[in-house]
Design a protein around this nucleic acid. Structure first.
Lengths: 347, 347
DNA sequence: AACATCTTGGAAAACGTTGCCCACTCACTC
DNA sequence: GAGTGAGTGGGCAACGTTTTCCAAGATGTT
């Protein structure tokens, strides 16, 4: 499969040209499927490439043309939902010449800026930014430099395409499900975003807004009860402690993310209550562990695979035509009901 | 923070040289902290760089020197254990000029070859391969081309450094723990590796061997019972079904990986048995979800963070000196006991 | 005072690829 | 038979760095 010993000098396009008795220009054209190559020439060059095991140097290509590299920025590699998106991405890009490279865990704006810059420095042909928390100014700047698709963040931009799930509708799915089971005291744990700049664009804010709107639509405006912590296990734990300390305890908790629900389950167990007999819990993201039998968490499933596929498609389109007007794709979530939600206690 | 509108042309080293009234050579020297630059010159160039917001083009750098990029290949982005390693890596590399880029989910040898080649094509300065399943020949070939560290795979190579956890000892930790609780009928679910080429180097094989050795050491050679499936939820489910169908049921199951334990819990629940009252279950990897309260899985913790940090250190050393003899680092796992293991039923 | 050595800075040639442009060969058309 | 246009192939100059020299001045050594 591979030559046993690595050649001391890497094969270049010049070697291929010599071996095939043609110009480097011709080889380059074949490599890029460019216009102006006869079938005979193409075959000859292809054979020389195969015989020598030639592989183009991406850095050198990038200096004049493309690097055939797409950078993906993930905020948190631990969230399996992002893996889902990534699968959609890579599946869609598998048949192309593009190679996907991931920027590692970017928590915070500085880290995001570092990674986006690093990708631009490496002449990547396109960027996919998943749930970025950077300022709009930074995103617009990035998108002005390189074709960019932003995933999981609401708000339109003229500079970049975006793909997002309808978090507003997703929140309503949870509220409606709980109401249908008979709940009225439905509380929500949100991620408290301090930055007002991009507040309105973040999924957590949309989920909280969707929760409130859905409660009002159900005639439960007075029951709206939000604990503001963070999308983390600890945030869920603390938020739930707050909610359980209310004079009138909620009978259901809608956690803004599955990991938050994990913290909620902790706090509920510590308080000596049972799920779902005493209190129902729902999450968001339908992460892998939500399906594990001991957890069996009711959760909102975002079509991660489709999100990724759409992002890839938009990015390829934009690489092909940078002037194309920006597109926004919004996908619909679905509710997966499991064993953490049930009718409220009758008492 | 950033210029609001992206400049039409990117700032190059020539711009910096002109602005600072020096040669491009001088700028290059400052960039690389190379020898032969007076403090005055350095300050002047640094200021010009800051004023213009210059960032070096990595592709161009790579053509002559380094790209300051380290590629990490992860087999499966969903396994939180790998995220742990990654954290150790990035923490250790945070203070350096190197940027980490991840190759996305590589399942299978072809995918691994594709990613490693892509990284080499991009002139990366070093590679970290996590739990690769490629042939030794391929690994040696890669390592001959670019500094490489292999993580989570046993077996020495002269071509690359390696970091691994002592899976043999980890398996013994589980067996000894279960024996201490009073178990004797301790079964194991392993990942069945068909490829004999790298069989002996893979962690799953070492764990299975460690299990057998520990059982013998405990005088339980006759109780050795292995279900050969795969390291997946389904593998755990099927393997457990096999084990539960035995004439004499095991009282404890040692799953070779946490995800396998999840499948085991499924099958056990379906069989109407309780954990840990009727049967104990232990996993391996101490993944994030193992700690979630409803799961509370006893598991073997590999010091992922330290593994990553060691890999980064070895790689930097090797980049600095490619002739250095290859090193092997072996770390010790620890057992985290939770609520899925308990004394066997007294009946 | 002559010579060797170190320090500092720059000119120019790589590195491997692509884009631009030109030249040549064939049909085909008027 | 000259002109036209499409189809092919190649020469050469980028692209943005680093590296390898070399020169000039400063400093030290006999």
């Amino acid at each position: 499969m591979d030559t046993p010993v690595a050649p001391s000098r890497r094969i270049t396009i010049v070697d291929v040209a010599q071996h095939a008795q043609v110009s480097t220009t011709a080889v380059s054209k074949v490599l890029r499927n460019a216009y102006g190559v006869s079938p005979k020439m193409r075959d000859r060059v292809r054979q020389a490439i195969a015989e020598l095991g030639y592989r183009p140097n991406a850095g050198a290509r990038g200096m004049r043309g493309q690097t055939y590299t797409i950078g993906v920025m993930l905020p948190n590699i631990r969230n399996p939902f992002f893996a889902e998106i990534l699968d959609g991405l890579t599946d869609h890009l598998a048949d192309t010449d593009y190679q996907v490279l991931l920027g590692p865990g970017c928590n915070g704006r500085d880290a995001e800026a570092k990674v986006t810059h690093a990708m631009i420095d490496r002449s990547m042909d396109g960027l996919i930014l998943i749930a970025p928390i950077s300022t709009r100014a930074h995103l617009d700047h990035v998108a002005a430099t390189v074709p960019t698709v932003v995933v999981g963040r609401h708000g339109r931009s003229r500079a970049y395409d975006s793909v997002a799930d309808d978090d507003f509708a997703g929140a309503a799915l949870v509220v409606d499900h709980l109401v249908e089971l008979g709940h009225t005291r439905i509380a929500h744990i949100e991620h408290h975003e301090t930055d007002r700049d991009c507040l309105a664009e973040m999924p957590n804010a949309i989920r909280a807004a969707g929760y409130q709107q859905a409660m009002r639509a159900q005639g439960l405006a007075d029951e709206i009860d939000i604990a503001s912590t963070s999308y983390s296990q600890e945030g869920g734990y603390l938020g739930t402690q707050q909610l359980l300390a209310r004079p009138v305890r909620p009978t259901a908790i809608f956690a803004g993310a599955d990991i938050v629900a994990m913290g909620a389950l902790d706090a509920i167990a510590e308080a000596g209550l049972r799920v779902p007999e005493d209190i129902s819990v729902a999450g968001y993201d339908n992460t892998t562990f939500a399906a594990f039998r001991p957890i069996s968490l009711t959760s909102v499933d975002q079509a991660g695979h489709q999100i990724g596929a759409n992002a890839a498609r938009l990015l390829l389109d934009r690489i092909a035509d940078r002037q194309r007007p920006a597109a926004q794709v919004k996908l619909s979530p679905t509710l997966v009901t499991r064993r953490t939600t049930a009718p409220p206690p009758t008492s």
